[in-house]
Design a protein around this nucleic acid. Sequence first.
DNA 1: ATCGTTGTTGCAAG
DNA 2: ACTTGCAACAACGA
Length: 265
Amino acid sequence: MPELPDVEGFRERLSATLPGRRIDSVEVRDSGVLRNASARALNRVLSGRRFEEPRRHGKWLLLPAEGPTLLVHSGMTGRPYYTSAGDGDRHDRVVITLDRGELHYADQRKLRGIWLVGDHEDDHEDNDDLDDMLGDQGPDALGLDRHVFTEILRRHRGALKPTLMDQSVIAGLGNLLVDEICWRARLNPKIRIAALDDSDIRQLHRAVTSVLRTAVRHGCVPGLRRWLTRVRDDPDPSCPRCGARVSRGRVGGRSTVWCPRCQPG
DNA sequence: ATCGTTGTTGCAAG
DNA sequence: ACTTGCAACAACGA
C-alpha cells in the first residue's frame, strides 16, 4: 500500500494524537521489523521521552522523541497507527505504550520496518545519522516546485517511469502513483526523458501536483471513476478517458498499465 | 503448487 | 558515471 499519500495519511493521523504523549514502554512482538536496534535498546532509549511533531520525507515517516527519532518505512504492508482504545491489528509487530493510548506498528510482510536514530542534541552533525538511514533521497514530491522538477528531470537520460520512481531523484512516488501520473500527462511510461520537450515536462508537473493532491486527500491512490488506477486490476481494462483497451506490461521491473491511444510510444 | 506483489537494496552487466 | 535487470527480503492470496 504505502506510497507518499498513504504515509502522509499516517503522519496526519499521528500528528493529531502523538505530540506530547510520553512513552512508557516498548513491546516488540516480532523483532523482524527492527533494522538497527534491539528491542531492549529501543525500550531503554525511548522510555520516558515524549513524542514530538511527526514528519515525513518521501515514503519515510519520522517520529522525533526529544532527541532520538524513530524512523518508519512501511515497505509494502506496514501501518503505524495510534489507538486509545487498546484495539489492535492481526499483524502488530511493535506496541509502544504511552501515558495515554498506544502507538502500534503493524506489518504483514516485514519488508522494511523501524529504525532508531540516536540522541544528538549537542552534536553539530546530527543529520548524518538520519541521512545514512534514509539513504539518498531526492526532494519530496509533494509541493515540488516546477522549475526544480524540470531541472531535476533534465539531469536524467533513462525511461520516464523508472526515473520518477527513483527515490534518489524524487522522493515519494510509487508504482501506482507513477502509472496514474503518466496517464494523466498522456506520456508513455517507457519514453526517454531526453525525448520530452518543455511542454511535456510542464504537463508532467501538473499531473504530479494534481494526482498527489487528490491522493493525499484520500490517504491512498484512490480508484476514482476517472482514474486509471480504478481499472488496473480489471480482467479486461479499458481507458477511463478514451475507452481504448488498456495495455499491461513491465516497465523498470514493475507491473505497469497504460493506454496505448492516450499514451502512444 | 507456482506465480505475482502498491517497496528497497545490492550486484552485475551493458 | 549512468541505466537496466535480477535476486532477495517475507507472507499471503489467486
